[in-house]
Design a protein around this nucleic acid. Sequence first.
DNA 1: GTCTATACGTGGATAGAC
DNA 2: GTCTATCCACGTATAGAC
Lengths: 184, 184
Amino acid sequence: MPPPPAARAKVLHAYAEILVSTGERSATLEAVAERAGVSKGGLLYHFPSKDALADGLLEHLRELTAADVAAMRSAPQGAVDYLLRTSADIDGEFELVYLAASRLSQGLYPQAREVLDEAQAAWTEALDDELGDPVLARAVSLMSEGLYSLATIGATRVDDAGLGDLIALVAQTAQARRGTAGTA
Amino acid sequence: MPPPPAARAKVLHAYAEILVSTGERSATLEAVAERAGVSKGGLLYHFPSKDALADGLLEHLRELTAADVAAMRSAPQGAVDYLLRTSADIDGEFELVYLAASRLSQGLYPQAREVLDEAQAAWTEALDDELGDPVLARAVSLMSEGLYSLATIGATRVDDAGLGDLIALVAQTAQARRGTAGTA
DNA sequence: GTCTATACGTGGATAGAC
DNA sequence: GTCTATCCACGTATAGAC
C-alpha cells in the first residue's frame, strides 16, 4: 500500500498531545483539527467519528508497543534502566501515545484498558527475564507506572540524579536477593 | 457553626465517584445532581458554578489528607505497609477523593496539582522518617502512585498476596541498606 | 481529499416559583 | 433550600461545494 496520508498521522499526534496536556475535555474535534493544521471537515474525512479517532490512536499504540518492548530488551544498560528512564521522560512518541491512551481509559473508552494491560504485561515480563525475580520486577513496573503518573500530573519531576539512585537501588537489591532466595 | 447540609456532602461524594469511574467528561452537573439525588438547580445553590464544585472537592481533600497522614504515621504495621495497602484499595473516602483530584489535575483544574503535591510530599516524608532512607522512601512512594494509577485504569489488580511480597521486599531492602550506607 | 455551512443535541448557568 | 423552565454557547456530525 502507498504511504498513508501525512494528515492522518498529524491528526493522531495532535490528538495525543492535547489529551496528555489538557485532558479529554479539551480534546474536541475543532481543537485537534486546528493543532493538526486541518479543518474539522478534513479531520472527519480521515476519522468519521470521535470513536474512530480514539480507535486510530489505540491501533497506533499497539504498533509502537511492540517496537518499544523490543528496544527495552536489547537496551545496552538493561531493561530496568531503559524503562525507568523513559518513564520519567515524556518526549518520545511512544510515551506520548501511551499516556494519551491512559487518559482515554479513564474516560469514555474503556477499550483502551486492554491495550494498556498488554503493554504493562509485556514489559513486566521483560523485567522478570532480566532480573529473575518476579516480585522485584513487579516493584520496578509499579515505579515506572508511578513515574508516568507523576510526570503527567505535572508533579515535581524526578531529576536525573534521583533516577540514577533508584536504578542503583534496584541493582543492589537484585544482587542481594540473588544471594538469598533468587537461585533456589 | 451548625452542621453543613447533608446535600453538600452528598454532592461532593457523587462528583468524586463519577470522576473516578467515568472521567471528567461524564461528570456533568446533571449527572452529579442525579447521582446525589438533587436537581441541577439544587446543586447550583450549594456550588454556584462548576469551578466552585471542583474547589469544594479540593478543599475536602486537604482536610482528608491531614487525617490520612496522621493515620499512616501511627499505623501499627508501619507507614510502608499502610501506604501500599491503602493504595491498592480504592474503597476509602480519602482514596476516592484523592483519585478524583488527580483526574481534575489532568484536565481543566491544574490547581489540583498543588494539593496532590502536598499529599505526595507529606507521605514521602513520613516514609523517610520510618525508613531513614530517602531513596527507598522515594521508591515506595512511586510504587504507591503506580498502584493508584493501575487501580483506576482498572488494570489487573495486585492481589493481597502480591502486596505482601512487595512489603516484605521493602523491609528486606531497608535492612540490607542499613548494613551498608544507611547509618553513615 | 479538504473546505464551508449548517443542523442537532447537550452542558453550564440564570430567573423565578414554591 | 430546592425545584422547573429557559437561554446561550459549544461539540459532534452531516451535506455539499471545490
